[in-house]
Each structure stands twice: as C-alpha cells, then as structure tokens.
C-alpha cells in the first residue's frame, strides 16, 4: 500500500463508517430506532435558530480548549490537566468579578479584567503541570490528572464555603452576577454572545498561524517530533514545553472565563462541562491539525446539543452523543494505526 492522500482519506471515511455502524448497533441493541435517533439529533442541532445558537454557545469553549491542546500536542505533550485549567480560569474570573462587581466601574471594563484574570488562572495552573513535568519528572498525564482533582476540590470548597450564597450552600453554584455583568447577548437569542464567538475564532486562527506560519511554531514542531534532536540543534526544549503549557493554559482559562461570564453567569461545581476532555477527543480526531479543529469541534458541539432531543422525544439517554464521539475517535486512531502498519509492511516487502 502506498502513502497517498487518497488512501488516507479512504481510511478516515472507513473509520467514520465503522463508528456509525457500532453506534447503530448499540442503539439497536438498546431497542431504539437508530435512524430516528440520528434524525432528532440533527434536528436538535440545526432545526431552528435557537438550537443553532445553543450549538455555537457550546462550540466556543470547546474550540478554545481544542485550540490550546493543539499547541501542547504539537510539542508532544498530553495536557490532560486542561480540565483543571478551565476550572481555575473560571475561579479566577469569578474572583475578579466578585471583587469588582460593586466597584461602580464600567461593566465592560469589569468583564475585560475578569476574562484576563481567567486567562491568568488557567496559565498558572498549566505552568504548575509544566513545572511538575520539567522539574519534578512527573509525567504530564499523571500530574494533570492530579491537578484536575485539586481544581475540582478547590472549586467545590469555594462554592460550598467562602463564596456560598447567603445562608445556603448549593450545587446550583454561587449567586448569579447581575445582568449588567453578563457578556452581551445577541439580539434574538437567549444566550449567544458574539464577543465570545469572536474570541474563539481569533483564537483558533492565531493557533493555526503560530504553528504553521512562524519560526516559533516550527521550533515547537521540532521539539514535538524529536526533543533530543531539537535540543542538539539548539532549541531550548524545556522552555518550549513550558511555553506550550502556558499558551494552552491561556486558552483553557479563556474557556473557563466564557463559562462564567457568558454561559452560567456564576461559578458552578462542574464549570468545565467536560470541554477539556472533549477537546482532547477533537484534537485526536483531527490528527492535531488546527485547520480541521473548528469544523470538527462544531460537529461535536452539535452532537452534544442535538442529543438533548433523545430523552425528550425518544426517551433515550443523551449519553449516546458520547458513544458516537468516543467510537469516532477510537476508529480514526485505529484506522491510523492499521494504515501505518500496512505502510511499514509495504516498505519492508519492497
């Protein structure tokens, strides 16, 4: 087998088909009608302006998380700790808003400061994972997982403790911020905030441009391909790893800030909404290529939002979206593995 663009695409299509077949089988085994399920997911994602705007609301933090992860993946790092970085971003944003909400300052200024604070929070938490890796020899996967738990614990402690509502500790989170401190919502929508859309789109373009079009991006790639060779060629390896952690942290923090200022308008226990893990899946699915991240993240967001129709109309569990997303990633990676093996065989035999 030859390494051509055509067979690469064929393998990807095959993976998607396999994923669909498996999900269809799962649905059939559960006694559901698979095609009705697909239809309602689609309608639930594109059937009206309301649901489309919901998809976009979900797309923004997912795309931000994915954008950050593309940078860490470029240097060969698995930044599992992104969930915690999103959480810390949300915590720092909430902190800034709590400090400033009664200051009488212009709400736009408060929002800008809060978002910057979120970026700082995400960055610091990511640098902690990076420092553990670089100076402590802790694999970033384990370090990140540990830091995720710490971030969750910190978040819950704040919600149920120092930042609780007067007299009440509630899973529904801290007291919502005044409407004047909500990210401005687009006319005709209940929750779509144009400012965050712009942030996400600029973000992914910046990541694409940095990785594909700058010397710094080239160096990140070199470290990712072969850290030892990169080091020998004079690229300071650990500094680039730390830089990639910091950049990913900025994006994760932004995602957290968006969750607080534009989606929930308060801090809630599961403020990251799992976008970090979902972002990992998107990044893996697109083969770590920034050019494909936006549409695939949009597809994942659509699946998430559309699947809400399943319990309402078909009385099915909405976790089906997760099954489809998971199998997609599995089969695409499996497809890549099989393809690489076949290519090796061809090389050896020729």
């Amino acid at each position: 087998m030859r390494d051509t663009r055509t067979n690469r695409i064929l393998f990807q299509i095959g993976a998607i088909l396999f994923a669909l077949i498996v999900t269809t089988l799962v649905l059939s085994l559960a006694g559901a009608q698979p095609f009705a399920a697909y239809k309602y997911i689609m309608l639930g994602a594109v059937g009206s302006w309301d649901v489309v705007s919901n998809v976009l609301v979900s797309w923004v933090p997912l795309l931000l998380a994915t954008s950050g992860l593309l940078v860490t993946f470029t240097v060969g790092l698995w930044n599992i700790g992104i969930e915690g970085q999103i959480t810390l971003g949300a915590i720092f944003t909430t902190w800034a808003m709590r400090l400033l909400q009664d200051s009488g300052w212009n709400p736009s200024l408060i929002l800008v400061i809060a978002v910057l604070a979120g970026m700082l929070g995400g960055t610091l938490w990511a640098l902690l994972a990076g420092a553990l890796k670089t100076f402590g020899g802790v694999n970033e996967i384990f370090g990140g997982l540990g830091l995720n738990f710490v971030a969750t614990a910190l978040n819950i402690w704040l919600i149920f403790g120092p930042w609780k509502r007067p007299g009440v500790a509630s899973m529904s989170g801290t007291l919502p911020f005044d409407r004047s401190l909500w990210m401005p919502i687009a006319a005709g929508s209940s929750r779509l905030t144009p400012a965050t859309l712009v942030i996400a789109i600029v973000g992914i373009i910046a990541v694409y441009a940095t990785i594909e079009g700058t010397y710094f991006g080239l160096k990140l790639k070199a470290v990712g391909r072969n850290p030892k060779s990169a080091y020998i060629l004079g690229i300071p390896t650990w500094q680039h790893m730390m830089a990639s952690f910091a950049i990913c942290g900025v994006f994760a923090g932004l995602a957290g800030a968006v969750q607080v200022t534009a989606v929930y308008h308060r801090l809630i226990p599961s403020i990251s909404s799992g976008y970090g893990y979902l972002g990992l899946m998107v990044a893996m699915l697109v083969g770590y290529k920034a050019s494909l991240a936006a549409p695939v993240a949009l597809f994942f967001a659509a699946l998430n939002v559309g699947s809400i129709q399943l319990p309402i109309i078909l009385k099915l569990d909405s976790s089906l979206a997760g099954v489809l997303q998971g199998t997609l990633v599995l089969f695409v990676i499996l497809g890549q593995g099989v393809r690489t093996k076949l290519l090796k065989k061809t090389k050896v035999s020729s």
Binding site: N54, S58, M171, S190, R191, V263, Y264, I268, P269, S270, S273, G274, Y275, N304, V305, I308, S318
Partner: peptide, 11 residues
C-alpha cells in the same frame, strides 16, 4: 449540570 454538562436549565 453534573448529569447534563454544558447545558443550562433554561436551555
């Protein structure tokens, strides 16, 4: 938000 991450109740 634990069972349906990413959604809001009003949504």
């Amino acid at each position: 938000s634990a069972d349906r991450p990413g959604t809001t109740v009003s949504q």
